[in-house]
Amino acid sequence: MLTNGRGGCQSLLHEGRNNDYIIKKYRDELDTVRKVRNSIAHNNEYYFLPSSSLYTLLEEILEKVIDSPKISDFIDNDLMVIKEDTSIIKTIRDMKKYDYDQIPVVDHKGKYIELLTTNTIIRWMGDLKLDQDSNLIIEDAQIKEVVKYAEEDEVCEFISKDSKLDTLIDKHESIIKAGNKIDAFLITENGNKEEVLQGIITDWEIPEIYNKLSI
């Protein structure tokens, strides 16, 4: 592997410069290997004997790059979504039953509209009127009335189901380093918001992805 500098470490460093979290993570190690390879190839006065641990490290990096799981391998096939005309009472009961604190709202074609969160529901309830006995008058409210109270600073990113998990990690870290927040990654066929929603990965699930990638 050391003798294949242009097609090996150098190629990995170049291709991963902007969009591969794993390559970025091991950039210093790969750059050192590239320099060693160049010394072997171009300077006959010095000789290097790579250790077995170096080969082991390179094999580990290469395996992570090639076999990095895709987002489609991580998402739940039983995605729970709600329509705009769904009853808020039924939705609250479902959220309690399945221990959800947010659910995607989609239109009749399955395209994403909004993310219904417990905070949104609380803000909506704060504007409800009371009856003579000080009970909230909810009637048969629908989701479309509740999502009007969604947070204005909600941030969701669309991403393709065929993207690698390390690509998602890279996007997440870029957002955080910029001082912003991300509520969820919304998964569609090609990462287009006009496509049917196929899955969702919330900020709370990001640590699980780190564990899955062993990074």
Rank of each mutant, 00 (worst) to 15 (best):
D107Y: 07
K35L: 06
L186V: 14
L115P: 00
K148P: 00
R17Q: 13
T120L: 02
R37H: 10
R37C: 02
V106M: 10
V81H: 06
R123S: 04
A178G: 11
E151P: 05
N211K: 15
L62V: 04
T56S: 09
T56M: 07
N19T: 09
V33H: 10
L58C: 12
S163M: 09
R17E: 13
S39M: 04
K144V: 05
T117C: 13
E60L: 10
L49Q: 06
T117Q: 13
D78L: 06
D31M: 13
T3E: 14
D94V: 08
N18I: 02
V105N: 00
K193N: 12
L58V: 10
S72F: 07
I122A: 15
I209E: 02
D101T: 14
S68W: 01
I143S: 04
L116W: 07
N19R: 15
K171M: 10
I121P: 03
D203P: 01
D153A: 06
K109Q: 14
D76P: 02
D203S: 15
D94S: 10
Q10I: 10
R34M: 12
D107I: 07
K164T: 12
I122C: 13
D183V: 03
N4S: 12
K109V: 06
T118W: 00
K24R: 15
P207D: 04
V65T: 06
S163Y: 09
I159R: 05
W204M: 09
I201A: 00
K177V: 05
E205D: 09
F158G: 01
D170C: 09
L186F: 08
G7D: 13
K97A: 05
F185M: 10
Y100W: 05
D85E: 12
H172Y: 15
I61R: 09
L168S: 02
L62Q: 08
K177S: 09
L54E: 11
N38V: 05
H108N: 14
K97D: 04
V155P: 03
T120P: 00
G8I: 05
Q102F: 03
G191T: 05
Q198E: 13
G199Y: 03
K212C: 02
N4G: 06
Y46S: 11
I143A: 04
D73I: 02
Q10V: 04
I138H: 00
N211I: 00
H172G: 05
L2C: 05
E114G: 00
E195I: 03
E157H: 11
W204A: 10
P104T: 03
L49E: 08
C156S: 12
I200M: 15
V155T: 14
I122N: 13
E29A: 14
E84Q: 06
K181Y: 09
D127Q: 12
S134Q: 14
K181H: 12
E157I: 15
K25S: 07
Y100G: 02
T117G: 12
E15C: 08
L2T: 08
I138S: 00
L79W: 07
C156I: 15
